[in-house]
Design a protein around this nucleic acid. Structure first.
Length: 552
RNA sequence: UGCCUGAUAGUAUAAUGGUAGUACAGCAGAUUCUGAUUCUGCUUGUCUAGGUUCGAAUCCUGGUCGGGUAACCA
């Protein structure tokens, strides 16, 4: 039985366009400005645009909107390509708005020739003053009635470098009384003597977003130009320019951008976190950037699923980060091999297990046989988790306590006999005896225990550094709070465990490999791992019913 | 203040004039050599006031509330 999934509003538009034959096929684009790293909000747009092209057998361009040389760098171009590819998408064409500078220049000349653009010598302040306000109409610039010839001459001189930055601009001649402020003679070209990451020093004038984006869409014959809600006011201008230029009529559609609890999603704010040292880098595992999430251990599959589940609509939203966590657990549960690691170790001594003896035990790698198994060394002295022992057990406590029985995962059932404390009352060692007939896979003891705990053999353990991450902000919506968003940064978003112990099979782990540390969470090997030191990032913890029980 | 948008469980998202559904979160239980996974059940919703209609989340009118918008940024 196939469940018909309902369409989002953009899919409805596309299906209508296809059904009426308005378009034979669709063509979308993902148009980042290469001035920063991509984040999960971009992933929503990427999944939408690429997803649409795939679903309707259309084309999709990766187009860099590089019309402001002051902010753009090749480093960002490279990272964006890497991130989109990592998410699992292939683009039909890799293009740049800067590829069209000659053509866009000609569009400007066309406008001038139609008497629909003029060179304005006003200063930014003068232009702003004449722009009026939402309630009062603007006033015409004194330069608005220059002749076509004069404008042509001046614009040519602008291109030739005859003027300094800011001396002149080219404006579309529309309507200084328009309700939509974007229609009050918007600036379409400005002078910027700056080195461009691709065109070098060829140009000293650059088109503004409004005179580059729609024109690029049109040149590429984009059918559905999908952007976020804040561009709604630009749509009127987008259409006006295409109409006046009589070029391919791309259409703009807008959807609501992604917001997520306990993080920020603007490039400006993310940049601040990096430059002001609140995080290490753009790919810091606490960042909502694609590169940060990848390093943290998120899979592309889980991010794609997340984007699928949040849906596409036009209303403002604030997605609960727990949905993202659910998506990554869902995927990692399926693909991550299980291993044992002790994060906060305390020594357990099996008093009736001979000193110097050890044995290899078989432990399963996953939920069923298809995952296979591996061998794990067992011996007299083990590391176990400090929180798995309670001197005075709480109600419903299934784990280790004086006199209590628990199973050591894939090994034996043990009974705690005694324990030692230091002068401050910290447990320093626990003694227990094991039940030989309870060996995992060959248990004839008939003893039933409620709890199973993980462990690592002291003699065989590998030392590792483990980095635990928490949410970056203390409040759900830092951008909405009073004052600077940085006041709400969570000071405990990173906890580094210098000396944890992991089972020896992890010696062969590769950077980026995912694991489930049994009972603790999903982890992946960080790129800062060296031959001296294994470094693991916690991607996400496991759901913890006991922690909830404790809270009650 | 103008203009543009939007409003369905706690959070998202469906229902396109005809049974308000799904996911996450929450709660309760079963299974479990991971207090995980899996499975079962449950709680919770159409912003408001009118109108049209046999019938309105859906159409109309007014209101309320939220968001966007007046860069030589994108």
């Amino acid at each position: 039985m196939s469940e018909e999934k309902s369409l989002n509003f953009i899919e409805e538009i596309i299906e209508a366009d296809l059904a009426t034959g308005h378009y034979g096929a669709i063509h979308t684009r993902f148009p980042p400005e290469p001035n920063g790293y991509l984040h999960i909000g971009h992933a929503k747009s990427i999944c939408l645009n690429f997803g649409l092209a795939i679903k309707y057998s259309g084309k999709i361009n990766l187009r860099f909107d590089d019309t402001n040389p002051a902010k753009e760098e090749t480093e960002y171009v490279d990272s964006i390509k890497e991130d989109v590819a990592w998410l699992g998408f292939n683009w039909t064409n890799e293009l740049y708005a800067s590829d069209y500078f000659d053509q866009i220049y000609e569009f400007a000349v066309t406008l001038i020739n139609k008497g629909l653009a003029y060179v304005d010598d006003s200063t930014p302040d003068e232009i702003a003053a004449l722009k009026g306000s939402p309630t009062e109409p603007g006033k015409n610039s004194p330069f608005r009635n220059r002749t076509i010839d004069e404008n042509l001459t001046l614009f040519t001189a602008m291109k030739a470098g005859a003027y300094q930055d800011g001396e002149k601009v080219l404006r579309a001649k529309i309507d200084m009384a328009a309700n939509n402020m974007h229609m009050r003679d918007p600036i379409i070209y400005r002078i910027k003597h700056a080195h461009h990451h691709r065109t070098g020093d060829k140009w000293c004038i650059y088109p503004m977003y409004d005179f580059a984006h729609g024109q690029s869409d049109s040149i590429e014959q984009i059918t559905h130009s999908i952007c976020t809600l804040e561009f709604i006011p630009h749509r009127e201008l987008y259409e006006w320019l295409i109409n006046q230029l009589e070029i391919f009529p791309s259409k703009q559609y807008e959807f609501a951008r992604l917001n997520m609890t306990y993080t920020v999603m603007s490039k400006r704010k993310l940049l601040q976190l990096v430059t002001e040292g609140y995080v290490q880098s753009w790919d810091d595992p606490r960042m909502p950037t694609i590169s940060g999430m990848r390093r943290r251990g998120f899979t592309a599959e889980s991010i794609r699923n997340f984007c699928e589940r949040i849906g596409i609509a036009k209303r403002e939203n604030l997605i609960d980060v727990s949905l993202l966590e659910f998506c990554v657990r869902e995927d990692l549960n399926r693909i991550a091999p299980r291993v044992m690691a002790v994060i906060d170790p305390v020594k357990l001594i099996i008093t009736n297990y001979p000193e110097g003896q050890s044995e290899e035990l078989i432990s399963e790698n996953g939920p069923d046989e298809t995952y296979g198994s591996r061998s794990v060394p067992f011996s007299r002295e083990l590391w176990i988790e400090r929180e798995d022992f309670m001197e005075e057990p709480a109600k419903k406590w299934f784990r280790l306590a004086p006199g209590a029985l628990v199973r050591l995962k894939s090994a034996y059932i043990i009974q705690c006999n005694s324990f030692e404390k230091d002068t401050e009352g910290n447990i320093t060692a626990i003694q227990a005896s094991y039940i030989p007939e309870s060996k995992s896979g060959a248990d004839t003891s008939e003893i039933k225990v409620k709890g199973t705990i993980h462990w690592v053999s002291v003699a065989h353990a590998l030392e590792a550094e483990i980095r635990l991450y928490d949410r970056l902000f203390k409040v759900e919506n830092p951008s909405q709070e009073e004052g600077d968003f940085k006041e709400y940064i969570n000071p405990d978003s990173l906890q580094i465990i210098q000396q944890a112990y992991v089972e020896p099979s992890l010696l062969t782990a590769k950077i980026g490999n995912h694991y489930q540390f049994i009972r603790k969470g999903y982890f992946c090997l960080d790129k800062e791992t060296s031959s001296e030191k294994l470094v693991f990032n916690r991607t996400v913890s496991l759901k913890d019913a006991w922690a909830k029980e404790v809270k009650k």
